[in-house]
């Protein structure tokens, strides 16, 4: 019989949420104490810098939870941004926003269609599509290989509007991931595709939709990316790959944290915020990029270590207590 009262379940949920919220807070305090140039003034910068990875991370989460690898996100976002800026030249703000979102969905559909048709591993698809999308972006961007957004339009992706966009995306993510059949099917396929198939779920269709939904989120990510510096530059020869790693690390951290707290929205937010705090903290400390990368990699491994061994650590503590009690009784 379920003896948990609503109150105790709520308290348990709040406790877990507070554990999650403590991660960025602790990181912030560590850098605040250790780095003179880092403090409350950095909060806005950190939040601002977390918005783009967060938008990408929410999109990537669908693919990664369905067991797929996504390395073409950077190329896709650059292409979306370039098309959006192109549209803004004719249609102004509506052209920019709608252009980005529609291009996001269309490129998502394209990647999904390639996956559904070829049925080859997502890693191969993502590398192939990375090259193809980069070339298309470069081709649309033309001679200089970069496109500038009219400065009067850039405000939409800046504080405070970027926070509003992320809040809307977060709500959409929650709705789609936890309150739709599609969201359940994504998690089911990531868990056991064979069983999912035997229960009538169509993995190819779900993965196709994953690419599409992911493209929708990338549309918003592209809006934020272009507005961040009012410009977007095409990349070639997989130059867009580095754009993928930061949000991907945030999602990986989020997936690991999900063992403790089943809420991907919060977990990805914590993961991306954590990454932004570390980057900014290290930058404030004046450390070279190599050390920044080293510490970031270390942080990722540390979170994975804590998350993966949380139960073992709890068991070990319990075991030590029990053995002490038993020894006392024998004594």
């Amino acid at each position: 019989m379920n003896t948990n009262s609503f109150g105790s379940k709520l308290a348990g949920g709040i406790k877990k949420f507070l554990w999650m919220a403590a991660i960025p807070v602790i990181l912030f305090v560590i850098f605040w104490v250790a780095t003179p140039g880092f403090g409350p003034n950095s909060i806005l910068v950190i939040l601002n810098q977390s918005m783009i990875p967060m938008a990408i991370g929410y999109g990537m989460c669908f693919l990664m939870k369905a067991g797929m690898m996504e390395l073409s996100a950077g190329a896709q976002i650059i292409l979306i941004g370039i098309v959006g800026v192109q549209f803004s030249k004719t249609f102004g703000m509506p052209g920019f926003i709608i252009g980005c979102i529609v291009t996001g969905v269309l490129t998502g559909l394209l990647k999904g269609a390639v996956f559904a048709l070829l049925r080859i591993p997502s890693m191969v698809i993502s590398l192939g599509m990375c090259l193809i999308l980069e070339v298309i972006g470069r081709w649309i961007a033309g001679g200089k290989g970069k496109m500038d957004l009219d400065k009067s339009l850039g405000f939409i992706g800046k504080v405070p509007y970027n926070f509003v966009i992320i809040a809307i995306l977060g709500i959409l993510f929650l709705l789609i991931f936890y309150n739709t059949a599609f969201g359940s099917h994504v998690r089911a396929i990531g868990n056991n595709e064979v069983v999912a198939k035997s229960l009538g779920i169509k993995p190819i269709k779900v993965k196709f939709l994953c690419y599409t939904v992911c493209g929708f989120f990338f549309g918003f990510a592209a809006i934020l990316q272009v507005c961040y510096s009012n410009t977007i530059a095409a990349k070639m020869s997989m130059g867009s790959l580095p754009m993928v790693f930061k949000p991907m690390m945030g999602v990986l951290i989020g997936i690991e944290l999900n063992r403790i707290y089943d809420n991907f929205l919060v977990n990805i937010l914590v993961g991306e915020l954590g990454m932004a705090i570390i980057f900014n903290g290290l930058m404030a400390a004046g450390l070279p990029t190599t050390i920044q990368d080293f510490v970031t990699g270390f942080f990722l491994l540390f979170v994975m270590l804590i998350s993966a061994n949380r139960e073992s650590a709890g068991d070990a503590i319990r075991r030590i207590k029990l053995r002490r009690q038993a020894a006392k009784q024998e004594g």
Partner: peptide, 12 residues
């Protein structure tokens, strides 16, 4: 799983 439609309003 696979029968979520009966609890759905639209896709939600």
């Amino acid at each position: 799983i696979g029968e979520e439609k009966q609890f759905a309003t639209g896709p939600v």
